[in-house]
Amino acid sequence: MIEPVAMANFFTVFFSAASVIVFGALYALLFAYARLHRRPRMMVLTYAAYLGLFAAVLTLAFAANLFSNGFWTLIVLLMLVGYLLAPHAIWYLCVGTHADGHDTGEGVTAETSPVKVYQQR
């Protein structure tokens, strides 16, 4: 069911697994920031971060022998799709939850409010 990691690949596994989470967060951060501040050019950086995540997942998969089994290959695919779509889904939920009776506290004008930004897109 599982093929243990070769000793030569230990560092690669640790580093690539940490990179999966860090690139995943960077992708989510850049995605949300680009949409919040209406900076479409930043989306290039956002998807560059996703490419980093993609590379990290593939590196982890090769080093941890995940492609040697159909189930673990499926997990790799789910990770790639899940991390790609999760920020989109959460942004959608953010907009939905703030849309009804959004508070415009000090510092948030109608122009800069995330709901307004989303509606203008």
Partner: peptide
């Protein structure tokens, strides 16, 4: 275990969204 970090990634998006709404006041 592969799924468990996804709520944390979701948290990042929500935190950025909320900081835009409240400016940390």
């Amino acid at each position: 275990s592969a799924l468990e970090p996804i709520p944390l990634v979701a948290m990042v998006v929500h935190a950025v969204f909320d900081s835009g709404a409240h400016k940390m006041k």
